[in-house]
């Protein structure tokens, strides 16, 4: 009975105050649309940055004279270095096959295989690449490496540093933008709700004067906020869904570029938007009312 009453009260308020309710709904719709476009972009950017960082490795080239016993020993030594997550061995044959596939003519001309056996050393975190390199080429060895069977350790110090810096910057910027945009959305929705409540503050005052408790007044407002938030978010989701199916999916099929970066799944996006829309709108209504309940 109570729930039914509060629900009817909420619907009555929306019917009788159509303009402010519509304004709140439009605000939720627009902010959720912006978030709905922005979140996948940020996710894709972060995904791209991470995949670039994931390619940051240390290559360890073996001497051509190295035996398989040497290789086993070196592999163990490499795994013992701090911050090494894994070590991948690429034999000279495998490397040759891979490379000659990419550039058959050049390798045909060469005739022999100039490539050494190689270890790809994968760091636990791309940021640790430089410290791994330093550990493999200690200054005490006088320009040498930790094992005589190692010919050399790849040296892309500057490139690595640049990649790390740029991807760091991209990730941080994306995170900051997400925070700012979320904040802006919350403030915008809360403000619209505040305005619509302000127009009804006399009504709230009268309710209190005839003996209504705070929660008796508040529930219909919270329910109204939930309905408005859910409706706005659902409309935004519908628009985004249509756009995705009609525009993005055909593009992604034709251009690998768009398909490539990993981004947030559409269902996850739906959940996030719906949750955010309802939460902000319902909480905003409930909290903004406090001021007017002090009668």
């Amino acid at each position: 009975m109570r729930v039914g009453f509060f629900l009817r009260e909420a619907l009555r308020a929306m019917r009788r105050n159509a303009a402010p309710s519509f304004a709140a709904l439009a605000t939720v719709l627009v902010t959720m649309l912006v978030l709905g476009v922005f979140i996948p972009i940020v996710q894709a950017t972060k995904g791209a940055a991470n995949s670039v960082r994931g390619r940051v490795l240390v290559d360890v080239y073996m001497r051509t004279t190295a035996t398989s016993a040497d290789e086993t020993r070196v592999q163990k030594e490499l795994l013992a270095v701090p911050h090494v997550r894994s070590v991948e061995f690429v034999s000279k044959q495998t490397a040759y096959e891979q490379q000659s596939k990419q550039d058959p003519q050049a390798y045909q001309l060469l005739g022999t295989n100039p490539l050494p056996d190689t270890f790809h050393v994968v760091p636990d975190n791309p940021a640790n690449v430089l410290s791994i390199r330093a550990a493999l080429t200690p200054p005490s060895s006088g320009g040498g490496t930790i094992d005589p069977a190692i010919q050399s350790v790849s040296n892309h110090k500057d490139d690595t540093r640049k990649i790390l810096e740029v991807t760091n910057l991209v990730t941080i910027t994306a995170a900051a933008l997400t925070v700012l945009l979320t904040l802006a959305s919350v403030l915008l929705i809360a403000n619209t709700i505040r305005l619509s409540l302000y127009a009804r503050r006399r009504e709230v005052e009268v309710m209190k004067l005839v003996g209504a408790t705070d929660w008796f007044i508040r529930w219909p407002f919270v329910i109204e906020g939930t309905i408005v938030g859910a409706a706005g978010a659902l409309m935004a989701i519908a628009v985004l869904g249509v756009t995705k199916v009609a525009l993005l999916d055909p593009l992604a099929n034709n251009w690998t570029l768009i398909a490539a970066p990993r981004t947030i799944a559409f269902t996850a996006l739906v959940v996030v938007l719906l949750g955010a829309g309802v939460m902000v709108s319902a909480l905003g209504s409930g909290l903004s009312l406090r001021r007017f309940l002090r009668v």
Binding site: A13, E203, V206, M207, G211, A212
Partner: peptide, 19 residues
């Protein structure tokens, strides 16, 4: 609120709920 329910008030400015 519970106290107010025991006091009926006819307000000078009526204070009706407009909706």
């Amino acid at each position: 609120p519970f106290y107010r329910r025991n006091v009926g008030v006819v307000f000078q400015d009526f204070k009706l709920l407009p909706n």
